[in-house]
């Protein structure tokens, strides 16, 4: 009887401890999670005329995403279009590959692009980091190709939208704006790696900025994503 009581107390302690830890993580104000308010104004103040590449996220036909492939597990982001040719092998199972159209600041479709994401070694739930290494390759007919690299953190997206979706099948609608970029530059920006054509020899920095308007498990995200690119003079 004493053994049973102690066991129950132990299990209760473990569960309570885990719950407290999860609650603490959820509410802890990790400094990087406030970067939208901190870094975005600095970027906007310093970037006089950034080059804008924008695409619309939607599960309707007005979206600009052509293809989205992950490992398929967890199935929080459905493949687009549905496919069984997924990134399932051990070395790529944390990957994401996106093909999309890109618009300029006026909403005109001007380019095609791919985004490749892979898991980042700096991801730690205990540190509030859900990170990826991310490439953007934008190719604009008549202009050339642009190669971009950034580190992303999706901690807030994960805890506010993905986790509730996974655990409770919870949907959300509203307006949530977020700076996805978290480096690798010390100022928090991503890097312009290089380019071709008009972009040949260019260096500079960029951010990926998102406005999420609808998150529903099993459906595509709805909202807007922007790459704001600043070239060195």
């Amino acid at each position: 009887m004493i053994f049973l009581k102690n066991t129950l107390l132990f299990l209760g302690g473990v569960i309570l401890g885990a719950a407290l830890l999860a609650t603490g993580l959820y509410y802890f104000p990790f400094p990087h999670a406030a970067r939208t308010e901190r870094i975005l104004p600095a970027f906007e103040a310093s970037a006089k005329a950034p080059e804008i590449f924008r695409y619309m996220l939607s599960d309707q036909t007005d979206g600009d995403v052509i293809s989205l492939v992950t490992s398929g597990a967890p199935a929080i982001f459905p493949m687009m279009p549905a496919t069984d040719r997924v990134l399932s092998e051990p070395n790529v199972k944390d990957g994401l590959a996106l093909i999309n159209k890109m618009r300029d600041d006026g909403g005109n479709i001007v380019a095609i692009a791919t985004e490749l994401e892979s898991g980042h070694e700096g991801s730690r739930l205990i540190k509030g980091k859900v990170m990826t290494h991310t490439t953007w390759t934008v190719i604009a007919p008549g202009r050339g190709a642009l190669f971009l690299y950034q580190e992303e953190d999706n901690w807030t997206l994960f805890k506010r939208f993905v986790l509730p979706g996974l655990l409770f099948n919870k949907s959300w609608q509203g307006s949530w704006k977020n700076l996805n970029t978290l480096g690798p530059r010390p100022d928090g920006y991503g890097q312009v790696i290089g380019g071709t054509g008009e972009f040949a020899g260019k260096r500079g920095h960029f951010i990926e900025f998102a406005e999420l308007r609808d998150f529903s498990p099993g459906k595509q995200l709805a909202g807007t994503m922007e790459l704001r690119v600043v070239f060195d003079e």
Partner: peptide, 29 residues
């Protein structure tokens, strides 16, 4: 779209010389 109708985008997996998938890639043309 007229601006894009002569382009191509490809996503494929990449393997090492032994055929083990070690990465993935995009090709834009």
């Amino acid at each position: 779209e007229p601006a894009l109708n002569n382009t191509l985008a490809l996503i494929m997996k990449l393997a090492d010389e032994n055929g083990n998938v070690v990465g993935f890639a995009s090709e834009l043309e």
